[in-house]
């Protein structure tokens, strides 16, 4: 994959990072987390899920911690956590801007 760093996270990437915030998971568990958290609004195809996991691992956002048969378990790294928090701060700022605009109008 590319050596180019990730730009802005997409919605799916953001939720994948969120899936690993509190516990180690495998890909299928991450997909279930995202579907449950978003009540089915964000759906992930297998290509997207495993491409994102591969890219995150390559970028040092996730680390593979266990392989049991076909099941690969990942953990969020400090770098991944920092990126997640950065994105949350950005989104909060966006929502605050939208709220302030609504109050004015």
């Amino acid at each position: 994959m590319s050596k180019k760093a990730l730009g802005t996270l997409t919605e799916t990437m953001f939720y994948v990072l969120m899936a690993f915030l509190k516990e180690e998971r495998c890909g299928t568990e991450a997909a279930e987390f995202v579907a449950c958290k978003t009540k089915g609004r964000v759906r992930m195809g297998p290509g997207t899920l495993y491409t994102i996991l591969g890219k995150f691992e390559e970028e040092g956002l996730l680390k593979e911690v266990a392989v049991e048969g076909r099941k690969r378990t990942y953990r969020l790294t400090d770098r991944g956590r920092a990126l997640y928090q950065e994105e949350v701060a950005r989104l909060r700022a966006c929502v605050a801007d939208a709220d302030s605009e609504e109050v004015q109008s």
């Binding site: 997409t10 919605e11 990437m13 759906r43 297998p46 290509g47 997207t48 491409t51 591969g54």
Partner: peptide
Amino acid sequence: FRTSDPSAPDFHTDPVAQSYTLE
């Protein structure tokens, strides 16, 4: 890859992630 399940999500649901597969 293929699916005959109409309820299965598309293989790629995020174009940006899909672009990584072409790199």
